[in-house]
Each structure stands twice: as C-alpha cells, then as structure tokens.
C-alpha cells in the first residue's frame, strides 16, 4: 500500500452526456459478457482540464458515483476540438445506466443522456465488470 492511499482524492462534479458507438454495439451483439464490450463501454471521455483537476493520468480509473449507484471506469481524454470542462461523455451501456437517476418525473423517460455524477481517482481499482453490475 503506497502513501497515496491515505491522501484524499479531489472530487469533481461532472455532467454526463451519453452517445452511441458502432464498434461497442457490434461488440455487444457478439458477446455481451466479453472483454471487448467491457473495454468499449466502461470508459469516460473527459476534457483535459478535468483530467488535471482530478489529478489523474489518461487511462487511470475513476470512481463515478451519484445517488443511483457507483462504478469504476477508465478515463480517456476526449480529443474534441471544443473544450468541454465539467461535461464528460460515456457510451450508452449498462455501465452508464447504473448512474441514470430512477426519477423520471412521471414521464416514463429517465434522463439517459444528461445526468450528474461525482468523479474521483479510484487509486488503481479495477474497472467494474458486467457481472458486478447485475
């Protein structure tokens, strides 16, 4: 156990927007329980400034949590030309759905594409597996 285990990790509030990915969709069809589907799903795309704020390096893992649940995912810089600090992107998947709030205001439509989480360094924890989700 390193000294870093005893230091508190900075927490950053992020607005999550979800999207679709053809390769992740294909991986799901081939094997929902496969490594490729997990690799392409359990990832968050961040603005460079948020990576700095979180005191992490690219490909480190992050804990994302809110009232609905918590997951560990891999952090990747989005590479988008337009800066987007405070907003992060996740592909739509069972991982993002752990964090989608249950409350739908009586409409029957949860906020799949727009919800908030608190992110922090997972300090080397493994990415949440599909079997841990169910």
């Amino acid at each position: 156990m390193g000294f870093g285990q005893f230091l508190s990790s900075p927490e950053v509030k992020l607005r999550i927007v979800t999207y679709r990915d053809a390769f992740q969709d294909a991986a799901k069809v081939e094997s929902l329980f496969g490594e490729e589907y997990e690799r392409l799903s359990a990832t968050i795309l961040l603005d460079a400034k948020d990576i700095t704020k979180l005191s992490i390096k690219e490909n480190d893992t992050l804990i994302l949590k809110n009232k609905s649940g918590s997951i560990v995912v891999k952090a990747v810089e989005s590479g988008y030309e337009q800066p987007h600090p405070g907003t992060a992107y996740m592909v739509n998947s069972p991982w993002s759905n752990v964090l989608v709030p249950e409350e739908a205001g009586g409409t029957g439509v949860p906020a799949f594409k727009d919800f908030e989480v608190v992110a922090s360094n997972s300090k080397g924890a493994k990415v949440t597996g599909i079997k841990d989700i169910v």
Partner: peptide, 27 residues
C-alpha cells in the same frame, strides 16, 4: 419505467429486448 418503479406489475415476459442492459439499474 413507471410500472417497474412503482412495483405495480407482479410478473414479466420480456421478448426482443434486454431491459437490464437498457434501463436504469435502480428501476
């Protein structure tokens, strides 16, 4: 979503979908 959230159904038949993948886990 509302039927599951309010626990108003007492059995389910699912065909041609995977709600455990596509709906919020809490629901």
């Amino acid at each position: 979503v509302e039927a599951l959230r309010k626990k108003e159904v007492d059995a389910a038949l699912v065909i041609g979908a995977d709600p455990l993948s596509s709906l919020p886990r809490s629901i």
